[in-house]
Design a protein around this nucleic acid. Structure first.
Length: 572
RNA sequence: CGGGAAGUAGCGCAGCUUGGCAGCGCGCCUGCUUUGGGAGCAGGAGGUCGCGGGUUCAAAUCCCGUCUUCCCGACCA
């Protein structure tokens, strides 16, 4: 490609709306342009990188036996009513966009579980056709509350998503592992260090699921990582290790009296800390008591240290305001654990509460708190568990060693769906080996392709510009002719090198523009093609072209007639 | 959705306080000179000052409304 013909304009300054390096450099380099908030155009350079990422994904999925198809982006809303997920529209969990047309209301597909289930289902009548994994690379739409950081978080995004169909759960888990491994290979080829972590499943659903996290300073997620045993989980799903407090109960110092305090208008942890501020009390001295219903709907009280953020297990929920009326022992804002068992309330404590105290907690009376409450003497715990958001230094749930927190970008998310969709979407039945009728056990696998461009460029740049890994670079070689306008020999030699490399199958970006050398150098650095080659009067006088690595800065002279031999097969 | 900031040429910005010819840098076009790390000189094109209303002899500037964009938070497949 001759640069004089390429649709690209590089910018010396970053646009004001670009905050992070990947966003700034992709815009400055002429890879992408913003059309609206969270909506981007891929210009020819960006398109080439996108194609390369897609090519890697296709190669690895095809190699794993997956088959590509293309599902519609426009989906009849009736499909979503069948699955029940239409009820989530407009919620934060599923910010879908809809469009009214003559054929009815359509959903701009935010994800494709419904469509793929009703598409594949009727085509499969027998267990003999299984296992089956299909995938697509498609545009998806999500009305993000807050698009951010260029391609990292957008409202229109390109995603690769695979769906597996199996005869039962065991077979599904085998398919899951196959695609899981393919995803690991994809990240490896992209030069990204992706860590699979246990995650929460959100609006997609299912039991087991993993996120593929790429550690990054611009990440919006954090995962818990145990350096000792390898445990890794999103903070939204991570569990803190620990043991119940039996051993520490009874160690209470009986001389600490329980004192009730009049604490009007102080329902929150911060309010109470402020009240006791003069006594050197911190949030860690407070017992946070939360009225919840557990997964079985039983009213319960969860205790945790006042300085920790709560994280309830799936299926648990906090009391609504009006539900306090049915439980007189729970006074909103002034709840404490003492005597709750007598009112039929189970008391469940986080492992972090397993010290005797003394604790400051609610008095179960309006506008009253108590200090000096001791575990074992003044209140009892029925069950222990992990009810806090895990943070650095907490014990690992597997090995007990302290864990760390890693900031990261969610690059992919895979889910073992089981029967969640096949039991509600029509046509999901087939004849099993024993002649009985069965439904698919499914899994789905989503990877943010356009987001990967942001991640790869974020992790591969320096202060001069992008530094693409060879497999995704828009070109393999950036060939610049210096002074071709006034030295015919340079123009001839550069043209010849360009022709020969192109014929040899090397993807070359040929900077044949009549601009000063400094501009060519700066643009080559900004665009980030792995190899830069210079043809200039200096080198020609020695019969060489100058080779330079964008990543390392290493330079070599290549004899003119050896260029093709050196560079052919860069991406074979 | 809550808090904050900003919309002036393709990009980056000044001008607004105190109303009076719409500017600067980069980029773009023409010519000449230059040419190994973002060249120089000369000439030129390009604007509904986001949009609507109001005040005024006069509005980029003051007032009201509205749209858009970015940041922090909430949320997140």
């Amino acid at each position: 490609m001759r640069m004089s013909r390429l649709l690209v304009r590089t910018l010396r300054e970053a646009p004001a709306d670009a905050e992070v390096a990947s966003h700034q450099l992709l815009v400055r380099g002429g890879y992408i342009r913003r059309l609206a908030s969270g909506v981007y155009t891929f210009l020819p350079l960006g398109m080439r990188v996108l194609h390369n990422v897609e090519r890697i994904i296709r190669e690895e999925l095809d190699r794993s036996g997956c088959q590509e198809l293309l599902l519609p982006a426009l989906q009849p809303i009736e499909l979503w009513q069948v699955s029940g997920r239409a009820a989530l529209f407009g919620s934060d969990a599923l910010p879908a966009m809809t469009v009214d047309a003559r054929g009815g209301t359509f959903v701009l597909g935010p994800t494709h579980e419904e469509v793929v289930t009703v598409t594949v289902g009727p085509e499969v009548d027998s267990y003999r056709q299984l296992p089956l994994t299909v995938y697509q690379i498609q545009v998806k739409f999500r009305d993000e509350a807050r698009p951010r950081f260029g391609l990292l978080r957008t409202r229109e995004l390109i995603m690769a998503d695979a769906y597996s169909f199996d005869v039962d759960k065991e077979a599904m888990q085998e398919s899951y592992r196959t695609v899981f491994d393919a995803y690991l290979r994809i990240f490896d080829r992209l030069g990204l260090e992706a860590t699979p972590v246990e995650a929460a499943s959100g609006a997609i659903g299912g039991d087991v699921n993993h996120e593929f996290m790429v550690p990054s300073a611009v990440g919006e997620d954090h995962f818990v990582s145990c350096p000792a045993c390898g445990y890794a989980a999103n903070v939204e799903a991570a569990i803190r290790g620990g043991a119940g407090g039996a051993a520490t109960e009874g160690g209470a110092d009986g001389e600490v009296p329980v004192v009730e305090h009049h604490t009007p208008e102080r329902p929150g942890i911060d309010d109470v800390v402020a009240f006791f501020a003069g006594d050197g009390v911190t949030a860690a001295d407070l017992l946070k008591s939360m009225a919840v219903f557990d997964a079985e709907g039983r009213p319960s009280l969860v205790l945790l240290a006042g300085d920790r953020e709560a994280r309830l297990p799936d299926g648990w929920r906090l009391f609504e305001d009006d539900e306090f009326a049915d439980h007189s022992s729970l006074v909103k804002g002034y709840i404490g654990p003492t005597g709750q068992q007598e009112h039929g309330i189970r008391v469940i404590a986080d492992f972090g509460v397993a010290r005797p105290g003394p604790w400051i907690t609610g008095a179960n009376r309006q506008d009253r708190h108590v200090s000096g409450a001791l575990l074992g003497r003044d209140f009892a715990v029925d069950e222990w568990g992990s009810f806090v958001e895990v943070t650095t230094g907490d014990p690992c749930p597997r090995c007990g060693e302290p864990v760390g927190l890693v900031r990261s970008v969610e690059a992919a998310h895979t889910f073992q769906l089981g029967y969640k969709y096949s039991e509600v979407m029509p046509g999901s039945n087939f004849v099993a080996e024993d002649g009985s009728e069965a439904i698919f056990s499914m899994a789905c696998y989503g990877m943010g392709v356009s987001r990967l461009l942001a991640v790869v460029s974020e992790e591969n740049h320096d202060d001069r510009g992008l530094v693409w890994p060879a497999e995704v670079a828009p070109f393999q070689v950036h060939l610049a002719a210096l002074g071709a306008g006034r030295v015919p020999e340079v123009a001839m030699a550069a043209d010849q090198v360009y022709e020969r490399l192109t014929v040899a199958g090397v993807e070359v970006l040929y900077d044949d523009r009549d601009v000063s050398p400094g501009v060519k150098f700066a643009d080559a650095d900004l665009l980030g093609v792995p190899v830069r080659m210079l043809v200039g009067a200096k080198g020609l006088s020695r019969g060489v072209v100058e080779w330079r690595s964008r990543a390392t800065g290493e330079e070599r002279d290549l004899p003119l007639d050896a260029v093709v031999e050196e560079l052919a097969g860069l991406r074979s």
